[in-house]
Design a binder for these strands. Structure first.
Lengths: 136, 136
DNA sequence: ATTGAGCTTGTAGTAGACTCTAAGGTTTTA
DNA sequence: TAAAACCTTAGAGTCTACTACAAGCTCAAT
Protein backbone atom coordinates (compact mmCIF):
# COMPACT_ATOMS: atom_id res chain seq x y z
CA UNK A 1 0.00 0.00 0.00
CA UNK A 2 1.03 3.59 0.20
CA UNK A 3 3.13 5.37 2.74
CA UNK A 4 2.03 7.97 5.22
CA UNK A 5 3.52 11.41 5.24
CA UNK A 6 3.96 13.23 8.50
CA UNK A 7 0.70 15.11 8.06
CA UNK A 8 -1.22 11.88 7.49
CA UNK A 9 0.28 10.40 10.62
CA UNK A 10 -0.46 13.42 12.76
CA UNK A 11 -4.05 13.57 11.54
CA UNK A 12 -4.57 10.01 12.67
CA UNK A 13 -3.03 10.32 16.10
CA UNK A 14 -4.15 13.40 18.03
CA UNK A 15 -0.73 14.92 17.46
CA UNK A 16 0.76 17.39 15.02
CA UNK A 17 3.78 17.43 12.75
CA UNK A 18 6.00 19.28 15.18
CA UNK A 19 5.21 16.91 18.01
CA UNK A 20 6.01 13.91 15.82
CA UNK A 21 9.37 15.36 14.85
CA UNK A 22 9.95 16.16 18.51
CA UNK A 23 9.22 12.55 19.51
CA UNK A 24 11.59 11.36 16.85
CA UNK A 25 14.29 13.69 18.16
CA UNK A 26 13.77 12.24 21.63
CA UNK A 27 14.10 8.69 20.36
CA UNK A 28 10.48 7.69 20.96
CA UNK A 29 9.92 7.19 17.27
CA UNK A 30 12.39 5.51 14.94
CA UNK A 31 13.77 7.56 12.11
CA UNK A 32 11.47 6.71 9.24
CA UNK A 33 12.30 6.00 5.64
CA UNK A 34 12.62 9.12 3.52
CA UNK A 35 11.32 9.97 0.06
CA UNK A 36 13.69 11.30 -2.59
CA UNK A 37 12.77 14.79 -1.53
CA UNK A 38 13.52 13.96 2.09
CA UNK A 39 9.93 13.64 3.26
CA UNK A 40 9.35 11.25 6.14
CA UNK A 41 7.51 8.10 5.05
CA UNK A 42 5.73 6.18 7.78
CA UNK A 43 4.10 2.77 7.92
CA UNK A 44 0.96 1.70 9.75
CA UNK A 45 3.16 0.53 12.58
CA UNK A 46 3.95 4.14 13.34
CA UNK A 47 0.26 4.83 13.85
CA UNK A 48 0.08 2.19 16.60
CA UNK A 49 3.22 3.45 18.18
CA UNK A 50 2.15 7.08 18.25
CA UNK A 51 -1.28 6.16 19.55
CA UNK A 52 0.38 4.23 22.31
CA UNK A 53 2.51 7.23 23.22
CA UNK A 54 -0.53 9.48 23.31
CA UNK A 55 -2.47 7.09 25.50
CA UNK A 56 0.37 6.41 27.89
CA UNK A 57 0.95 10.12 28.30
CA UNK A 58 -2.71 10.57 29.13
CA UNK A 59 -2.23 8.01 31.90
CA UNK A 60 0.35 10.27 33.48
CA UNK A 61 3.48 8.54 32.20
CA UNK A 62 6.32 10.90 31.28
CA UNK A 63 7.96 10.62 27.88
CA UNK A 64 10.90 8.95 29.59
CA UNK A 65 8.59 6.32 31.07
CA UNK A 66 6.82 5.89 27.75
CA UNK A 67 10.18 5.27 26.13
CA UNK A 68 10.86 2.61 28.75
CA UNK A 69 7.53 0.93 28.11
CA UNK A 70 8.20 0.92 24.38
CA UNK A 71 11.64 -0.53 24.93
CA UNK A 72 10.24 -3.57 26.74
CA UNK A 73 11.05 -6.21 24.23
CA UNK A 74 11.37 -9.90 24.82
CA UNK A 75 13.49 -11.76 22.32
CA UNK A 76 13.00 -15.43 22.97
CA UNK A 77 16.23 -16.36 21.31
CA UNK A 78 18.52 -13.86 22.92
CA UNK A 79 16.71 -14.37 26.20
CA UNK A 80 17.03 -10.88 27.63
CA UNK A 81 14.46 -11.93 30.18
CA UNK A 82 15.85 -10.78 33.47
CA UNK A 83 15.86 -7.04 32.93
CA UNK A 84 12.67 -6.99 30.92
CA UNK A 85 10.75 -8.96 33.49
CA UNK A 86 11.88 -6.78 36.38
CA UNK A 87 10.95 -3.66 34.53
CA UNK A 88 7.63 -4.95 33.29
CA UNK A 89 6.76 -5.97 36.82
CA UNK A 90 7.66 -2.55 38.15
CA UNK A 91 5.45 -0.94 35.53
CA UNK A 92 2.67 -3.31 36.49
CA UNK A 93 2.96 -2.12 40.07
CA UNK A 94 2.73 1.49 38.88
CA UNK A 95 -0.32 0.68 36.84
CA UNK A 96 -2.05 -1.15 39.66
CA UNK A 97 -1.49 1.85 41.89
CA UNK A 98 -2.99 4.14 39.30
CA UNK A 99 -5.93 1.79 38.87
CA UNK A 100 -6.64 1.79 42.60
CA UNK A 101 -6.48 5.55 42.84
CA UNK A 102 -8.64 6.05 39.78
CA UNK A 103 -11.24 3.68 41.16
CA UNK A 104 -11.35 5.65 44.40
CA UNK A 105 -11.83 8.86 42.48
CA UNK A 106 -14.54 7.26 40.43
CA UNK A 107 -16.46 6.18 43.50
CA UNK A 108 -16.10 9.66 44.94
CA UNK A 109 -17.38 11.29 41.78
CA UNK A 110 -20.30 8.90 41.66
CA UNK A 111 -21.20 9.87 45.18
CA UNK A 112 -21.14 13.50 44.20
CA UNK A 113 -23.49 13.03 41.29
CA UNK A 114 -25.72 10.96 43.54
CA UNK A 115 -25.69 13.53 46.36
CA UNK A 116 -26.47 16.07 43.73
CA UNK A 117 -29.94 15.38 42.52
CA UNK A 118 -32.32 13.15 44.36
CA UNK A 119 -29.86 10.72 45.86
CA UNK A 120 -30.48 9.00 49.18
CA UNK A 121 -27.65 10.85 50.84
CA UNK A 122 -28.64 13.86 52.84
CA UNK A 123 -25.35 15.66 52.48
CA UNK A 124 -25.68 19.36 52.88
CA UNK A 125 -22.29 19.93 51.42
CA UNK A 126 -20.73 17.34 49.22
CA UNK A 127 -17.29 17.79 47.77
CA UNK A 128 -14.92 15.33 46.25
CA UNK A 129 -12.91 15.33 49.46
CA UNK A 130 -15.94 14.50 51.61
CA UNK A 131 -16.88 11.80 49.18
CA UNK A 132 -13.39 10.33 49.35
CA UNK A 133 -13.53 10.35 53.14
CA UNK A 134 -16.74 8.39 53.10
CA UNK A 135 -15.22 6.03 50.57
CA UNK A 136 -12.16 5.08 52.57
CA UNK B 1 -5.45 20.08 68.77
CA UNK B 2 -2.40 21.64 67.33
CA UNK B 3 -1.82 23.21 63.97
CA UNK B 4 0.48 22.07 61.22
CA UNK B 5 3.23 24.26 59.92
CA UNK B 6 4.18 24.11 56.29
CA UNK B 7 7.02 21.69 56.98
CA UNK B 8 4.69 19.32 58.82
CA UNK B 9 2.27 19.39 55.95
CA UNK B 10 4.91 18.80 53.29
CA UNK B 11 6.37 15.90 55.26
CA UNK B 12 2.99 14.22 55.30
CA UNK B 13 2.15 14.66 51.64
CA UNK B 14 4.98 13.79 49.26
CA UNK B 15 5.46 17.48 48.57
CA UNK B 16 7.78 20.18 49.83
CA UNK B 17 7.32 23.67 51.23
CA UNK B 18 7.90 25.43 47.94
CA UNK B 19 5.38 23.28 46.13
CA UNK B 20 2.76 23.95 48.78
CA UNK B 21 3.28 27.70 48.48
CA UNK B 22 3.13 27.30 44.72
CA UNK B 23 -0.19 25.46 44.94
CA UNK B 24 -1.51 28.20 47.20
CA UNK B 25 -0.42 30.83 44.69
CA UNK B 26 -2.29 28.93 41.98
CA UNK B 27 -5.47 28.78 44.06
CA UNK B 28 -5.40 25.01 44.62
CA UNK B 29 -4.96 25.50 48.34
CA UNK B 30 -6.85 28.09 50.36
CA UNK B 31 -4.79 30.71 52.12
CA UNK B 32 -4.35 29.24 55.57
CA UNK B 33 -4.58 30.94 58.92
CA UNK B 34 -1.37 32.61 59.98
CA UNK B 35 0.45 32.67 63.30
CA UNK B 36 1.44 35.98 64.87
CA UNK B 37 4.78 35.67 63.16
CA UNK B 38 3.10 35.07 59.81
CA UNK B 39 3.70 31.31 59.66
CA UNK B 40 1.11 29.32 57.73
CA UNK B 41 -1.05 27.20 60.05
CA UNK B 42 -2.80 24.27 58.44
CA UNK B 43 -5.50 21.91 59.63
CA UNK B 44 -5.88 18.20 58.95
CA UNK B 45 -8.19 19.08 56.09
CA UNK B 46 -5.22 20.46 54.22
CA UNK B 47 -3.54 17.06 54.44
CA UNK B 48 -6.47 15.42 52.63
CA UNK B 49 -6.57 18.14 50.07
CA UNK B 50 -2.86 18.01 49.27
CA UNK B 51 -2.93 14.23 49.13
CA UNK B 52 -5.79 14.45 46.68
CA UNK B 53 -3.82 16.87 44.53
CA UNK B 54 -0.80 14.57 44.53
CA UNK B 55 -2.87 11.55 43.59
CA UNK B 56 -4.84 13.29 40.89
CA UNK B 57 -1.64 14.59 39.36
CA UNK B 58 -0.23 11.10 39.28
CA UNK B 59 -3.31 10.08 37.29
CA UNK B 60 -2.33 12.53 34.59
CA UNK B 61 -4.65 15.37 35.55
CA UNK B 62 -3.15 18.82 35.10
CA UNK B 63 -3.24 21.29 37.95
CA UNK B 64 -6.04 23.06 36.14
CA UNK B 65 -8.07 19.88 36.02
CA UNK B 66 -7.28 19.13 39.65
CA UNK B 67 -8.58 22.57 40.55
CA UNK B 68 -11.77 21.76 38.66
CA UNK B 69 -12.17 18.48 40.51
CA UNK B 70 -11.65 20.22 43.84
CA UNK B 71 -14.19 22.85 42.93
CA UNK B 72 -16.92 20.25 42.47
CA UNK B 73 -19.09 21.09 45.42
CA UNK B 74 -22.72 20.28 45.88
CA UNK B 75 -24.61 22.54 48.23
CA UNK B 76 -27.99 21.00 48.82
CA UNK B 77 -29.48 24.30 49.84
CA UNK B 78 -28.20 26.46 47.06
CA UNK B 79 -28.78 23.59 44.68
CA UNK B 80 -26.04 24.33 42.21
CA UNK B 81 -26.71 20.89 40.89
CA UNK B 82 -26.83 21.39 37.16
CA UNK B 83 -23.28 22.55 36.58
CA UNK B 84 -21.73 20.26 39.14
CA UNK B 85 -23.46 17.23 37.79
CA UNK B 86 -22.47 17.93 34.21
CA UNK B 87 -18.88 18.44 35.19
CA UNK B 88 -18.72 15.44 37.49
CA UNK B 89 -20.16 13.29 34.75
CA UNK B 90 -17.59 14.57 32.28
CA UNK B 91 -14.82 13.76 34.73
CA UNK B 92 -16.31 10.31 35.20
CA UNK B 93 -16.10 9.76 31.48
CA UNK B 94 -12.45 10.83 31.52
CA UNK B 95 -11.74 8.48 34.39
CA UNK B 96 -13.50 5.55 32.75
CA UNK B 97 -11.44 6.12 29.64
CA UNK B 98 -8.25 6.12 31.67
CA UNK B 99 -9.37 2.97 33.47
CA UNK B 100 -9.98 1.19 30.17
CA UNK B 101 -6.65 2.20 28.75
CA UNK B 102 -4.79 1.29 31.91
CA UNK B 103 -6.41 -2.11 31.96
CA UNK B 104 -5.34 -2.72 28.37
CA UNK B 105 -1.80 -1.74 29.23
CA UNK B 106 -1.91 -4.00 32.23
CA UNK B 107 -2.96 -6.98 30.14
CA UNK B 108 -0.24 -6.20 27.64
CA UNK B 109 2.41 -6.01 30.32
CA UNK B 110 1.22 -9.27 31.80
CA UNK B 111 1.58 -10.88 28.39
CA UNK B 112 5.10 -9.61 28.17
CA UNK B 113 6.12 -11.04 31.51
CA UNK B 114 4.43 -14.29 30.54
CA UNK B 115 6.10 -14.43 27.13
CA UNK B 116 9.30 -13.74 28.94
CA UNK B 117 10.02 -16.78 31.02
CA UNK B 118 8.38 -20.08 30.48
CA UNK B 119 4.98 -18.93 29.33
CA UNK B 120 2.82 -20.82 26.89
CA UNK B 121 3.18 -18.20 24.20
CA UNK B 122 5.76 -18.91 21.57
CA UNK B 123 6.42 -15.32 20.67
CA UNK B 124 9.84 -14.81 19.23
CA UNK B 125 9.60 -11.10 19.71
CA UNK B 126 7.19 -9.69 22.21
CA UNK B 127 6.82 -5.96 22.69
CA UNK B 128 4.13 -3.95 24.37
CA UNK B 129 2.75 -3.01 20.97
CA UNK B 130 2.47 -6.64 19.85
CA UNK B 131 0.91 -7.53 23.15
CA UNK B 132 -1.62 -4.73 22.77
CA UNK B 133 -2.48 -5.94 19.27
CA UNK B 134 -3.16 -9.41 20.55
CA UNK B 135 -5.22 -7.95 23.37
CA UNK B 136 -7.64 -6.03 21.22
C1' DA C 1 22.09 33.92 74.85
C1' DT C 2 23.25 31.97 70.83
C1' DT C 3 23.03 28.48 67.39
C1' DG C 4 20.49 26.07 64.12
C1' DA C 5 16.32 24.64 62.16
C1' DG C 6 12.28 26.48 60.28
C1' DC C 7 9.56 30.13 58.43
C1' DT C 8 8.63 34.59 55.37
C1' DT C 9 8.49 37.08 50.56
C1' DG C 10 10.16 37.91 46.13
C1' DT C 11 12.47 36.80 42.15
C1' DA C 12 15.04 34.02 39.07
C1' DG C 13 16.11 29.66 37.10
C1' DT C 14 15.08 24.88 35.37
C1' DA C 15 13.10 20.61 33.17
C1' DG C 16 9.82 18.65 30.36
C1' DA C 17 7.06 18.88 26.52
C1' DC C 18 5.94 21.03 23.17
C1' DT C 19 5.07 25.09 19.58
C1' DC C 20 6.32 28.53 16.40
C1' DT C 21 9.02 30.98 12.87
C1' DA C 22 12.02 31.54 9.06
C1' DA C 23 13.67 30.35 4.75
C1' DG C 24 13.23 27.36 1.41
C1' DG C 25 12.20 22.96 -1.42
C1' DT C 26 8.15 19.63 -3.20
C1' DT C 27 3.59 18.04 -4.61
C1' DT C 28 -1.01 18.51 -5.70
C1' DT C 29 -4.76 20.77 -7.74
C1' DA C 30 -7.39 24.18 -10.26
C1' DT D 1 1.72 26.71 -14.93
C1' DA D 2 0.97 28.80 -10.96
C1' DA D 3 -1.17 28.90 -6.60
C1' DA D 4 -2.09 26.28 -2.51
C1' DA D 5 -0.89 22.83 0.46
C1' DC D 6 2.74 20.14 2.18
C1' DC D 7 7.33 19.09 3.51
C1' DT D 8 12.48 20.18 5.31
C1' DT D 9 15.92 21.96 9.16
C1' DA D 10 17.48 24.89 12.74
C1' DG D 11 16.68 27.51 16.31
C1' DA D 12 13.96 30.39 19.30
C1' DG D 13 9.96 30.85 22.21
C1' DT D 14 6.18 29.22 25.37
C1' DC D 15 3.67 26.92 29.00
C1' DT D 16 3.40 24.09 33.07
C1' DA D 17 5.03 22.85 37.19
C1' DC D 18 8.07 23.29 39.94
C1' DT D 19 12.83 24.51 42.35
C1' DA D 20 16.35 27.30 44.10
C1' DC D 21 18.21 31.33 45.91
C1' DA D 22 18.60 35.68 48.88
C1' DA D 23 17.81 38.30 52.78
C1' DG D 24 15.75 38.28 56.80
C1' DC D 25 12.57 36.98 60.79
C1' DT D 26 11.14 33.23 64.51
C1' DC D 27 11.31 29.38 67.39
C1' DA D 28 13.32 25.46 70.05
C1' DA D 29 17.13 23.65 72.35
C1' DT D 30 21.49 23.72 74.64
Amino acid sequence: MSYLRIGDLSKRTETNNETLRFYESKGLLDEPRRSDAGYRLYTEEAVSKVNFIVRAKRMGFSLKEVAELLSLRVDRESSTCGDVKIMAEQKLIDIDKKLKELNLMKTALEQITEACCGGEKSAVHCTILNALDETS
